[in-house]
Design a protein around this nucleic acid. Structure first.
Lengths: 202, 202
DNA sequence: GATTGATTTGACCAAACGGTCAACTGAAGG
DNA sequence: CCTTCAGTTGACCGTTTGGTCAAATCAATC
């Protein structure tokens, strides 16, 4: 007894099209700044047709956020207790920076939400997110206690990785304005490797 | 012949009240998410009265942004060519972190604007901001060339200071959710000093 | 090719929005 | 007291917005 009937091909395709359009518009203008007309136009659908697939504007936003959270936390999930500590952390930094380079809209969508107090995703922050960070912080603390990396506060280490990598997506306009249009990412990757290597092997 | 007549006491006070209310509301909801009714209510004034002092919603926003930019760049302005390099940079980090602690709303207002492509302040990014950063980057590059700090890309060094300090204001909700409500700032200050000291004296 | 349910849309609605205006109030100087 | 002008506001307006609905169209199955 499936409570929800199976989706047709058209439903699968149009839901995808709408989410892609919603990502484009929400990440540019924020939740309140985005309009259903904009999203519909971007998706190539009529406004009532949007609301045939999603019950409300907020439902599109929530669907985007929750499908995003997994992708966003995957790099931290992959941090391996049994790997080489410095290499593991540097890999995490690289993976997170790659997300900023390849999925800047997702980063800005998330930033917009957190910036405004995470009204539609707040629960996940103190729940899944905190659980994961607590676990990985314990791993990092263990590495420090064993003398395999220089001692650092593991929570602020994780925050600093988030801040440094997401900055290149979220503040892209500012970064490129200062650099005069040059692509920031090659330089960023080299700089961040240098920074965390020095921090962890001091 | 003063083109603009002198301001009365009431004008000075009410303009200030409106800007304070606008800061509160804009920083929480963004430009599009904020309404004149919210700002008026927060300021304890009627909506038509708001528009007696500012010609439009956008005018309030622009007034906030431009008066903010100076405050925001002051810590970088203060970076002294003739001081001790490591101490100068660490002082810059501390001053910038203090801004995040003491003026989080200003930080979020700015973040909101840049996140959405800086539509109302874009010009200043490639202008005043770039000019200042170029000048200070040259100073830092000089310190590196003279062997007084470890060699680092000065632009990414500045970006990293912005990212790390503003993160604690802009992503406050997330940081506190992970830390379980604990005040992040004491730990952040210690961590950032450690990080930049190791980076610059490697 | 007829039927049935999935899909699409033009027309519409109520609420919220930024902004206007004429009229009212208050305060300061003569 | 009266005049004058800064300050204030209730009522209002046109537009935009999220969302609804009945009717039309399309696609799959029999």
């Amino acid at each position: 007894m499936p409570a929800t009937p199976p989706l047709t091909r058209i439903q699968i395709k149009n839901r995808q099209v709408i989410l892609e359009a919603g990502l484009e518009v929400f990440s540019q203008h924020g939740f309140r700044g985005a309009t259903l007309d904009q999203i519909a136009s971007q998706a190539g659908l009529s406004k009532p047709n949007l609301l045939y697939y999603f019950p409300s504007k907020e439902a599109i936003h929530v669907a985007l956020l929750s499908s995003l959270l997994d992708t966003w936390l995957a790099p931290l999930q992959a941090l391996d207790d049994h790997g080489d500590p410095v290499a593991e952390i540097l890999d995490y930094v690289r993976r997170k920076l790659a997300l900023s380079r390849d999925f800047p809209r997702e980063s800005r969508l998330f930033a917009n939400e957190v910036l405004q107090g995470a009204p539609r995703i707040g629960g996940a922050l103190g729940g899944d997110l905190k659980t994961l960070v607590d676990a990985k912080a314990a791993v990092i603390r263990g590495w420090g206690a064993a003398g395999r990396i220089a001692p650092v506060d593991p929570y602020h280490l994780i925050f600093s990785i988030w801040a440094l990598t997401q900055h290149y997506a979220d503040f892209d306009v500012q970064v490129r304005a200062v650099l005069g249009g040059e692509d920031p990412f090659p330089g960023a990757e080299a700089y961040l490797e240098q920074l965390f290597r020095r921090l962890l092997t001091a």
